[in-house]
Structure formats: C-alpha cells, structure tokens
Write a protein that binds this DNA or RNA. Structure first.
Lengths: 108, 108
DNA sequence: ACACTCCGTAAGTTTATACTTACGGTTAAG
DNA sequence: CTTAACCGTAAGTATAAACTTACGGAGTGT
C-alpha cells in the first residue's frame, strides 16, 4: 500500500487528527499529548502508533519518555498524492472542455 | 466542522478513495462508477453522497442518470489544510533549532 | 398505460476500529 | 533494592460505519 493511502487512512479519524495537530507545537511526550484529551493515555499511544506507521510521526527516546514529533515524509506523500490528483482532474476538465467545443462545432 | 476535516474523513476509506479516483476520468454515471467494483451499487451511491458533502464531488442530472464529477472545492480545502500544517511544522522545526543553538551556547 | 432503466433511501446486519482496563517492561531517583 | 514515572501491548467491549437487500420515485421509450 502506498504511503499516501496510509496517511489518508490515519488522518481519517478526528481524535487522531487532534493528536496529530498537537505534534505541530513541537516535541511532546505521550503524557503531554494525552493531557486534557477525552480519551485515555493508552488510546493515545495506539493513535501515535498509527501515525508513526503512516509516516506522520517520529519517536525519540529520552529517559523514560518517548518524545513524538511530526514526520514530514507522510505530509510529503500526501502532498504528492494531492498534486497528482489535481493534475489529472484538470486534464479531465480540459478534455471535457474540448469535447464541449467539438459538440459546438458540430451543431453549427 | 471545517471542509478540510470532512474531506479527510471522506478520503479515509479505501473504497471511497477508489470511487473518487474513478471520477478523475471525467463524468461518470453511478452505474459506470459501480461497474466492476466489489461493492453493490447502493453502496456506491452512499459513498458518492459522502464525497458530495465533503466537497469532493458534484452531480448533474442527465435524463434518468446522475453524472458525477470531481469537485475542486474539497481538493482546495485539503490543500489549504496541508499547507497550513506544513508552515506550522516548519516553524516548530525552526524553534527547535534555535533552542538547540541556545543550548549549545550555554554549554560552551 | 406499461415496461424498463437508473438511481436514492430506509432498515437491518455485519464488520472494522476506537476505546477501556489490566498488565509488564524500562528508566531514573531515593 | 524499592519506588515511582512513563509508556507500549494484550484482551475484551462498545460503537461507528460500511454493506446488503428491499423498495419506490423519476425519467424514457413502446
């Protein structure tokens, strides 16, 4: 499975997006990420695992803590997926416009 | 809820992504989209509804058929979300680098 | 009027997954 | 060596959502 597909799967959950957004602020321990959240700390751990597999987060061990931060690989993959899609869509639009023009010519 | 969040929710499902990709090819009726897919036609209809509410698809009635095509609004929203995230992430990186430099200076 | 095609929705079921509690491992500190 | 902080994983449950079948409406042709 492509990385971009995994990032989309990972970001398809509201709580996971919330957790992911918290990583924007910089390096955060699991306890810090979970603080104030409506779900338990183990749940956060599981979400972080998914984000990690999706190339959206990286861990760094620091004593007894795991410091999580944003991994740009996932974001890059997502951007690539989006750009590719965008191009093909625009091309389809152009084709549709050409067909439209051809139909115009015929009915004249 | 922001549009970008809804697009992420919508694209968080593999079958829905597959359907969405089929819309790239241009205007397609529901029957055409569902053709050869492993899920039933009503299922496709439901997915298309979700894509529509997520700003990723638009419908056009043509006789007894509904022609679906890609809506760029959702893609634009997603791109915006991604860009915003990217900026904040880079800024966090810069801050981290500065802190790192400050620490370097202190220990010297 | 009738038949046929194409499609959306309702209702119900099934399946995936988000979540909790319980537990054990690792590290640092007293 | 004990205690405590921090965290990941296992197992089980609960909930959301993807899917099916059944149905009816709307348009088109005969």
């Amino acid at each position: 499975m492509l990385l971009a597909e995994r990032t989309l799967d990972a970001l398809g959950d509201p709580t996971r997006r919330l957790i992911f957004k918290r990583l924007k602020g910089g390096n955060k321990s699991v306890e810090e990420v979970a603080r104030g959240l409506s779900v338990s700390r183990p749940a956060v751990s599981q979400h972080l695992k998914v984000l990690k597999t999706a190339g959206l987060a990286v861990v760094r061990v620091e004593g007894t803590r795991r410091i999580y931060s944003v991994d740009t690989r996932g974001l890059t993959a997502l951007r690539g997926w989006l750009d590719g899609f965008w191009d093909k869509t625009l091309m389809a639009f152009r084709d549709a416009a050409e067909k439209e023009a051809a139909r115009e010519r015929e009915t004249r």
